[in-house]
Design a protein around this nucleic acid. Structure first.
Length: 828
DNA sequence: GCAAGGTC
């Protein structure tokens, strides 16, 4: 019997399918799937099934000096015991074993872990290694036709990384935690990947804090051809000292005199017209980072995007989402894949138009790796009802990205016009999309045009509406999540599988908060201390060096011990420096921890109010002057409090956010909350009486416990909107364009409920009540938005739908095809 | 209980 071992269950099943021609049987042992056919068994691991750690005598943080960890031995122990046990049983019965883990360094190490488990119970069977970079018939067959041996040097390179990461991470983490007296759940962590990432965020924050804004002015005017009314906007510019075009005027007097002069004129003469054509190449195939970035532009966090991608992968709709590769493999046939989408109600039309091209040549990125193919759809298409709205949106993104990579380039025409008015010059940059190319199948990039008419040199234009705008230079912007992940990739830290988790870790550790992430005082102190005493651990150099060392091990130029010994010596030297500064570092960290808990002045004694934890673990707000001052304020019972930048105008206290995973919500100023247990925050103007009497809407809780949005002038104004009785109500920063009120989110149970603008919500509620037209929602893939669209076309019920002419409706409604309507009619 | 890397 031959035993085939893969890195994950999914790969085991697909390989069994290919090698058995679909005839395999599957069974379950110890909760592990085993696929069996004609004398072969195939089993999937779950990544690493053993992990590295120190021996148990090092496990008590207080009994062991952190420095002792440097020379402690490092042991391997099973972490997935059921998988290891199953593997041992299967290996005993095997006559040959084949390692088929992923084709990358970590895969080689996981393969070696499997090798050792097999060898341990069966010391003479042959163990071979097969390598393939995508699980397709061709690649897998070829790999099994020409098996190779395990590359122990490559695996050793991975082991060196494991040891160095553990020793540095554990020793420094324990040192900082012990010096600050943080031993419970709130230890202070440091690591080769997380710390340089944190430094990136902290460095940017330092720039922001040090930023000194400067005033400047910009001038705009409308230009127009004298024969028609269509004006276009132009901006004033001048030549700076380096003879570059500059738009910002740094002196107010100058700005005003330019303004006066331009305002006194009504004509400008065209002095330069410059048209050029620009090709806008289609994007390259998705690797993990670029996928996260594109999903980020649709509003998905890195973590959420990856979690959805994993679900779509497991369900068979798209390829493996963790990949560095941006070059499609040879055996991906774009035509065949496009064919799978032909006839699909929403994705079919674009596939058909792409298939009309004479030749289909996909784009290629710079990274060609052996790990997995770039992310693309498999050709198995989920039906709209099988997946959630978010899953569908991500799926469509992946499909359309694939479309874009086989589509034509777009072509833009740029037109720059410079006109002169007196001594001053104005310029306008027009752009027009003349060939939409890939934008037609990939609508995620902006294609907005800027109108500038064709003019001739020497032509006289009208000049009007001169505007002078006072502005200020802005501090650099914080990194967003996807920007951070891209930067990590550029710096070479983390991997395709871990970068998004690293960010999540920084959130969990209390180092960053919000989106874009902002560092806490603790984070700044940790980076500070590391920079001063252990610069390597916050620099990308450590990874760069490690990569070089790992290459040396993999090439046989160095041994694992050479590399780990040298690394241990460096850490030893760091600890010699640290020993003298333990107290100073501890003081600084403790002070920063306190800063992160400080809300503002106590209303009774003026000392600091701090977030505290009771003996039972619940959070409350207490005074730093305790026991002299016993002032306290309550906090909600769910979640972990986080102090926001925003301060309450009335009490000078920072607002509080309760972190509770998906149930996270903003609690606000705790003193306001306590004072108006009855009357909550004002959220906007009262639509009935704001103009006449200045009434405002507030969230109120009545004696009865029921809640509503009501006018602050009650009982003089009785305007009110209902709110649900249960759950914390979060007032978000998003506002409804129509009613100028914030969107509300209700937190109760598992899923936060996005109630939205309270007026819109009430109107929808009334509409549902009076029309009961929502029986349309019973149809496959029809949600509230579609119901609204259909209502615009006069379709308010299933009866209306069955009577309607699909082509008429499709013409009336944006984004709903006649075919889709016919499908619904059949369903109805 | 520490890291980072797999995978779910």
């Amino acid at each position: 019997m031959e035993l085939i071992i893969t890195e994950k269950d999914n790969a085991a099943r697909r390989i069994a399918d290919i090698l058995s021609g679909g005839t395999y049987d599957s069974s379950r042992q110890n909760g592990v799937n085993v696929y069996e056919w004609g004398g072969k068994r195939c089993v999937g691991l779950s990544g690493h099934v053993v992990g590295v750690d120190f021996p148990p005598e090092y496990s008590d943080w207080r009994d062991v000096e952190p420095v002792e960890l440097i020379d402690a031995s490092v042991e391997k122990t099973p972490t997935k015991e059921n998988i290891v046990a199953t593997l041992r049983i299967l290996a005993r019965k095997a006559e040959r074993a084949t390692i088929a883990t992923d084709y990358d360094r970590e895969g080689e190490l996981i393969g070696k872990e499997a090798y050792e488990i097999v060898r341990d119970v069966n010391d003479d069977i042959p163990i071979r290694r097969v390598r393939f970079s995508s699980i397709t018939e061709n690649e897998v067959q070829n790999a099994f036709d020409e098996p190779d041996d395990l590359d122990f040097d490559l695996a050793a390179a991975g082991e060196a990384r494991q040891i160095i990461d553990l020793v540095w991470g554990a020793a420094l983490t324990r040192f900082l935690s012990l010096s600050a007296g943080q031993l419970g759940n709130d230890f202070i962590s440091v690591g080769r990947v997380q710390s340089p990432t944190l430094k990136l965020i902290v460095d940017r924050e330092r720039e922001i804090e040090a930023f000194d804004p400067e005033d400047y002015w910009e001038l705009f005017a409308d230009l127009g051809k004298s024969d028609d009314g269509d004006a276009f906007e132009a901006q004033y510019f001048y030549r700076d000292d380096d003879d570059n075009e500059a738009e910002r005027v740094w002196d107010e007097g100058t700005a005003e005199s330019v303004f006066e002069d331009l305002s006194s004129r009504d004509q400008a003469t065209v002095v330069d017209v410059n048209g050029r054509t620009r090709t806008d190449a289609p994007p390259t195939p998705f690797n993990t980072t670029q996928f996260i970035r594109a999903a980020g532009a649709l509003g998905y966090s890195a973590q959420r995007a990856m979690s959805i991608a994993e679900d779509l992968y497991t369900a068979g709709y798209m390829t493996y989402p963790r990949t560095d590769n941006t070059v499609y493999p040879d055996d991906l046939e774009p035509d065949d894949l496009l064919d799978e989408f032909v006839g699909h109600p929403t994705l079919g039309e674009d596939a058909e138009s792409l298939l009309e091209a004479d030749e289909i040549v996909p784009t290629e990125g710079d990274e060609e790796t052996t790990d997995h193919p770039p992310i693309h759809p498999t050709g198995e298409i989920p039906s709209r009802g099988d997946v959630s709205d978010d899953e569908w949106e991500i799926y469509e993104l992946v499909v359309r990205r694939f479309y874009a990579t086989v589509a034509d380039a777009a072509v833009w025409e740029h037109l720059k016009v410079v006109a002169e008015a007196g001594d001053h010059r104005l310029k306008a940059n027009g752009k027009r999309l003349v060939e939409p190319g890939y934008h037609e199948v990939y609508p995620y990039f902006s294609t907005s045009e800027n109108y500038v008419p064709a003019v001739d040199e020497g032509e006289t234009l009208t000049l009007s509406d001169v505007e002078l705008e006072e502005k200020q230079t802005q501090p650099p912007r914080r990194y967003g999540q996807s920007r951070l992940i891209e930067t990590m990739e550029d710096m070479g830290i983390g991997t395709k599988s871990t970068r998004h988790n690293t960010l999540e870790k920084l959130y969990d550790r209390g180092y960053i908060e919000g989106d874009p992430p902002r560092p806490t005082r603790l984070a700044m102190a940790v980076v500070d201390a590391a920079e001063r005493y252990a610069d390597r651990v916050v620099s990308e150099e450590m990874t760069a060096q490690l990569e070089d060392d790992m290459d040396a091990i993999a090439n046989g130029d160095a041994g694992l011990e050479d590399v780990t010994d040298e690394s241990r010596e460096m850490l030893e030297a760091i600890f010699e420096e640290l020993a003298n500064s333990r107290e100073e570092i501890g003081d600084h960290l403790r002070k920063s921890l306190k800063d992160d808990k400080r809300l503002g002045p106590c209303p009774e004694c003026g000392e600091d109010l701090l977030v505290r934890q009771s003996r039972h673990g619940s959070y409350f707000i207490g005074c730093d002057g305790y026991p002299d001052c016993e002032f306290t304020l309550p906090l909600p019972s769910t979640g972990k409090p986080l102090i926001l930048e925003a301060e309450c105008d009335e009490h000078g206290l920072h607002e509080v956010k309760m972190l509770a995973g998906r149930q996270t919500f903003v609690h606000g100023c705790p003193l306001c909350k306590a004072e108006d247990a009855g009357e909550g925050p004002v959220i906007g103007d009262c639509p009935d009486c704001a103009d006449e009497h200045g009434g405002e809407l507030a969230i109120k809780t009545l004696q009865s416990g029921s809640r509503l949005v009501g006018c602050t002038r009650y009982p003089d104004c009785e305007y009110s909107l209902p709110l649900p009785r249960r759950g914390e109500i979060e007032v978000t920063e998003m506002t409804c364009d129509e009613h100028d009120l914030p969107e509300l989110v209700v937190h109760s149970g598992d899923e936060p409920w996005e109630l939205g603008c309270p007026i819109c919500n009430y109107q929808e509620f009334q509409a549902r009540e009076s029309e009961s037209g929502s029986d349309l929602e019973a149809l496959d893939g029809v949600g509230a938005k579609t119901v609204e669209k259909l209502a615009d076309a006069g379709i308010e019920s299933l009866d209306d739908l069955t009577d309607a002419d699909p082509d008429d409706v499709a013409a009336d409604v944006d984004g709903i095809s006649a075919d889709r309507i016919r499908t619904w009619q059949a369903e109805a």
